[in-house]
Write a protein that binds this DNA or RNA. Structure first.
Length: 215
DNA sequence: AGGTAGATCTCCT
DNA sequence: GGAGATCTACCTT
C-alpha cells in the first residue's frame, strides 16, 4: 500500500502498478464517482499522485455547483459525456480539476481536492516553488493542479487515456472513508458531499464533524 | 494555532 | 460591479 515516505515510485513503475479505468466506469452519479475516485492515481507530465479527497457537485438543485446556472461556455463540458475534465480558474489564479460524472445531459462532476504525491516529487517542488513537506505539494485543489501542471489547456480531455489520465491500482486498497460538508462554498453548506480517505495525512483540512463510513 | 489581506480573472447580475 | 469550489504571507494569541 502506497503511503507517503514509505515507498518511492518512478513514473513508469507506478504506471505498471496501475490499470486503466474504462470510460463507462465514470458514468455514475457524482457522489458515487467521488468515492470511487478515492485511491485512484492521476498521471500528467512526469508527475503522479493518488486521490485522497474529493467533492461531488450535482445538478440544478445544487446551488453550490457551477452547472446549476445552466450551460455556459465554461460549464458546457459538465453536460457532456462522463470521464472528461472540467477545469476552471478560481479567484483569478488557481486552476481546479473536476471529473465529469453521470450520463449526457445530467450535470454532475467531482472536484479533486487533494492527492498523495507519489512520482516526480522533485518536479512538483520546482513547479510549486515549495521546499516544505511533500504533502504540502498537493493538499488543496489549486496546489495539486500546479504540482501536476494541469491548466485549462486540458479542458475537456478524456481521462481514461491520453496525456492526462486517471488509473486504478491492480488491487484496490482497503481504507476508511469519511464524509463531511464541502469546503469554501456558501450554498448547500451542510450537504455531506465531501469524501476523504480518513486519517490520511495529505487531506487538505481536518473535517470539523466527519462521519465515518464502513471501511 | 488561528485570523486577515492581497493577488487577479471569469462569469453572471 | 461583485462574488467566487484558493493560496500565501504576515500578522496576533
Amino acid at each position: 500500500m502506497p503511503v507517503l515516505d514509505k515507498l518511492s515510485w518512478t513514473y513508469s513503475t507506478l504506471w505498471k502498478a496501475t490499470l486503466p479505468i474504462s470510460l463507462s466506469a465514470f458514468a455514475v452519479p457524482a457522489p458515487q464517482l467521488a468515492q470511487f475516485l478515492l485511491s485512484t492515481v492521476i498521471f500528467h507530465e512526469h508527475t503522479a499522485g493518488m486521490i485522497v479527497e474529493t467533492e461531488a457537485y450535482l445538478g440544478a438543485d445544487d446551488l453550490a455547483a457551477h452547472s446549476s446556472r445552466g450551460v455556459t461556455p465554461r460549464t458546457k463540458v459538465i453536460f457532456g459525456p462522463a470521464g472528461h475534465a472540467y477545469i476552471y480558474l478560481i479567484y483569478g489564479m488557481h486552476e481546479c480539476l473536476n471529473v465529469v460524472a453521470d450520463i449526457v445531459g445530467t450535470p454532475g462532476c467531482v472536484l479533486i481536492r487533494a492527492l498523495e504525491p507519489l512520482a516526480g516529487i522533485p518536479i512538483m517542488q520546482k513547479r510549486r516553488q515549495w521546499r516544505g513537506s511533500p504533502k504540502g505539494l498537493t493538499n488543496g485543489p489549486g496546489k495539486l493542479t500546479q504540482a501536476l501542471a494541469i491548466t485549462r489547456a486540458q479542458y475537456g480531455l478524456r481521462l481514461d487515456q491520453g496525456p492526462l489520465t486517471i488509473r486504478q491500482w491492480r488491487s484496490r486498497p482497503e481504507f476508511p472513508v469519511a464524509t463531511t460538508p464541502r469546503i469554501g462554498i456558501s450554498q448547500c453548506v451542510d450537504w455531506p458531499l465531501r469524501f476523504i480517505w480518513a486519517n490520511h495525512t495529505c487531506v487538505s483540512k481536518t473535517p470539523r464533524s466527519p462521519s465515518l463510513q464502513s471501511p
